[in-house]
Design a protein around this nucleic acid. Structure first.
Lengths: 223, 223, 223, 223
DNA sequence: TATGAATGAGCATTCATTCAT
DNA sequence: TATGAATGAATGCTCATTCAT
């Protein structure tokens, strides 16, 4: 058996499914390194150990290939988070576990995260649509969490209006913090998640409780 | 035939300074519309009303040109923020005015913002370095603010370690919220800034005060 | 799982002859639709319901395949014409029946005709040789007819020299008229054949009879 | 002067107009040799002594380039014919001079003729439209000639219906005869034109005069 | 100063063709 | 017999960049 693996016949003849995974793996790697535009199909095919025609036959054009990468990685991320969250838990625990799962994913799947965050956010191309949609979904989920939480604590008007915006802010903060964390691996994911949790959850709690910050002199806020 | 025809006004001999501004304006516009890679030097030269060799003579290669755009726009943003902040004010007011200036800038200079946020973040060309440096500077400023604030309120250890990370989170939250706001122009910049201020400042205040969130059951945090 | 599933009827083991016909049919169809170059072996194999390796095994390379198509269809055409012509008849009747058979074939086998006329004429691949040879054969046949006819009516020198050229002209006229006819299906094949017959036969008859057209002023013909 | 021509500066800097002609010349040559599909832009650029980007800048995509070739050559042909024909002459003389001009053109501009006849006729591609249109125009002109002629001689019904078809036949005959002639250069263009003129003009004259050919036994024509 | 003219170099894509099974 | 899997080799096209004027 091991001999077979060491000396593959000149041309490995693998089932489509396997090849597709190989290709996607290579593509994620290359896209994550060079970015969408600077990534060449040649390099991907080389890294995948597969000729270009196979890529086109199985995954389609460059754009399709990229979209497939995004879709796969985004699904992985979402699944990871979903797996972490317990639906029955109170909102804060859900958020907490969601954040932890998120940071764990970022820490373990650096390349996936880079593709998702760096490339797809960039701009243009029909794929960013796909990713922005998933980002919006994440925001909506957080929003729902915030709403539930606020409701249970007695929502006031100020909080009501702001939940969607704050959900967006939280997602952005998570992304940015994830980037920061990649440069500071000495901190554990648990700690990082804790910081963010404090910032956001406590801050939001204050808002809900009517414990709001306002400029000392109201007129200072005038534009 | 006549003297006028031999020296048509078409060939304007403009001072270098003016040409450079024309070119940068055009470049920002085109980069912001198509993204760095899809923007072609041809289109930029056309929009600028200047031939390509001039662009190369004045601003250098495409990368240089892009970096120049980033630099100019980032400087504008930073100046706008700096102008809003009063150095003598207490930390919260500084942050408040900084945020307000930031959102005002985003609202008024949409193209600039798009170039800064979308293009430069995207992929690690040599230019993103430039931008990341400025982003880091912003983070450092916020960090300093947080430190000052925490110090004045009696910093505890938990807060000390976290300031830089939280500054990064805040910057990310601001960016993300700015994007959200561009899709929800019905909200005033003041209100948006207020939301973020509450979230962050109050949350950070809680942290400093030792009023921290922790998982209900500590063991839940185990990975 | 069951025996039936292990030997699905899907894999028909057909005799070579049948497969070849399937393939040729498909090839004629595809070539006639897209032209030689734009026709892809993939599409042919798909239309034929046969995998590509089979095509190569049975009919050889693309060029060979095309040549085989040409040969088959040209043979069909020639047979159709030969069947119409009665060898015993006088030359004019032979030509007449030949033309009729030709137009009938064009009307009934449009795809065959398109392959023969459009594709093969077009470009000097090595296949067009094959077709040009058959075309030359047709011209030679017509030439023989003209010679016989002229001889029987007392050939003069002018006619002698011209028969081969006129045969070529007649073949070209037939082809062109066939194309015209495909766009004017309201005319019957008999009528069309009649027109051409008149034009050519009568004109040739005049020539043989010495009833020739000459420029009014001979010097007009000088170049 | 001659020295300058022998040692051009490394990069000749010619006005656009000149380059376009060079490119078109090369394109006609290459297309005529290899056919549209087998002609590569690389070879054209090489033959033209110009880099590919210039071709694209000046003449556009391959299809556009080909269409430009067709258009130029077709215009040359039509102009050559138009120049030969004297509008005031009687129909037969017009046809005569038209044919003579046509054969002269074919003899002198073999490459042009090959591009026009072989390539464009082939099929598919959006360019053949362009050429077919010009062919139709030629047919229409001949048709008009036939109609005028028939009218002046007392047109009968049989002739009336057939003119358009016969015009198509004549054009096809000319093309085919031109091809034949290219293989038989020993015959003068004048003689060839004379043969065709006789065939067609006399035959058509017979038709107009009611001197028609019919199958000996009418029932022979039944299908 | 200012530009039309020119190109090297690369990239996505496709297709006929052939193994290994 | 029959085919899914695999590729070498082109080819059309684009773009940043630079001369020669």
């Amino acid at each position: 058996m091991s001999v077979d693996e060491r000396r593959p016949t000149k041309v490995k003849r693998l089932p489509r499914e396997v090849r597709e995974r190989q290709i996607l793996d290579a593509a994620v790697r290359v896209f994550s390194q060079h970015g969408y535009h600077n990534a060449s199909m040649d390099e991907i095919s080389e890294v995948a150990g597969v000729s270009k025609p196979m890529i086109y036959a199985y995954l389609g054009h460059k754009e399709d290939l990229f979209a497939a990468c995004i879709r796969r990685e985004a699904t992985l991320l979402i699944d990871a988070i979903a797996e972490g969250v317990q639906v029955e838990s109170p909102p804060d625990m859900q958020l907490w576990h969601g954040l932890r799962a998120f940071f764990r994913f970022v820490g373990e799947q650096k390349e996936s995260w880079r593709v998702l965050h760096r490339q797809a956010t960039s701009q243009g191309g029909p794929f960013s649509d796909e990713l922005l949609a998933m980002r919006d979904r994440a925001i909506a989920l957080v929003d729902a969490l915030l709403v539930r939480s606020a409701t249970s604590r007695g929502m006031n008007e100020a909080a009501t209006k702001s939940t969607e915006a704050l959900a967006a802010a939280l997602v952005g903060a998570s992304e940015s913090l994830a980037d920061w964390w990649l440069d500071h691996p000495e901190v554990s994911d648990k700690v990082v998640a804790g910081w963010l949790m404090n910032l956001v959850w406590m801050g939001f709690g204050d808002l809900v409780d009517g414990n709001v910050w306002t400029p000392v002199k109201p007129e200072d806020g005038q534009s």
